[in-house]
Design a protein around this nucleic acid. Structure first.
Lengths: 146, 146
DNA sequence: ACGAAAATCACCCGTTCGGGCGATTGCCCC
DNA sequence: GGGGCAATCGCCCGAACGGGTGATTTTCGT
């Protein structure tokens, strides 16, 4: 069985960014206050403020508009359940996509090549494939493998 | 030997971002000038400047520290040339990834299965693969196929 | 016009793969 | 405690595949 990675931070993310922004505003306030009090050169302060927000923006932009994660890759439990693909079969499918031979898969899983063949035969039936390359292609199309 | 992908735009990127930054600075200058001339509320101006640079920063951050790009998929001509993979061989590789048999590939390309076998043998040699699934995996890893 | 590379096809041989059939062992659920 | 299912292993057989070798034609750059 594969685990479902990445799904954290939805709420926390918003909170964190909100907090960061608020912090920036507060900083701005403070900076403005300091400027008035000490009557420093407004040019320098303006530059510092701009620089600070530029950095903040770069940081935010770096995480906010980070490419929509090419594919969180959840293993597509829906399709998997629908087709009734077992844990072992999925494992074999992954090894298949890695380009391994039956022999290699058998060794990696500590089972007989015959067992691998059985798993493969079941996979072919469930994926409606007739060849290993076919199974890989269909498995990928279904999002079962990356 | 493996090739080194992604090394383009390094220079142009720096130039573009440098220009953008310079533009921001100029904008800042202009804004400051306007502020002095019209003697507007410095608070509002400071806020606007901060906001502007925040937006600029988000934009920059969005492209600067972006994940290695989910691969627009260009067929990776570099790797292809480096390995000396011909047009025909690429076509066969694509059909292979689609899960077709030698017979099907031969029919699709209007050639003999023997020819397909030859192309495949060349592909195996160039991709250092021993099986079709292996060739597909390596071809995909190299970005030769989607 | 020549040579190199690509594309095409053929044959042999041994291995792998796919299809079919059967069997045993656990485990869960009712 | 019987039915269902996943996982395991075995055997047989024919088809597909991979490895090797050799050959011809086309294409392209010089």
């Amino acid at each position: 069985m594969r685990i479902g990675v990445e799904q954290i931070g939805g709420w926390r993310r918003i909170l964190i960014y909100g907090a960061l922004f608020a912090l920036g505003v507060l900083l701005l306030e403070w900076i403005d206050y300091q400027r008035l009090v000490r009557s420093r050169s407004s040019d320098i302060w303006l530059f510092l403020v701009a620089l600070g927000f530029l950095v903040l923006g770069i940081y935010l932009g770096g995480r906010l508009l980070r490419a929509p994660a090419p594919r969180p890759f959840d293993g597509n439990p829906q399709a998997r359940a629908q087709l009734g693909i077992s844990d072992r079969e999925l494992t074999v499918l992954e090894a298949l996509a890695a380009g391994k031979s039956n022999r290699q898969i058998a060794d990696a899983l500590h089972v007989s090549p015959n067992t691998v063949k059985t798993h493969l035969a079941n996979l072919y039936a469930k994926l409606e494939a007739e060849r290993r390359t076919d199974a890989v292609a269909r498995g990928r199309a279904l999002g079962l493998i990356p």
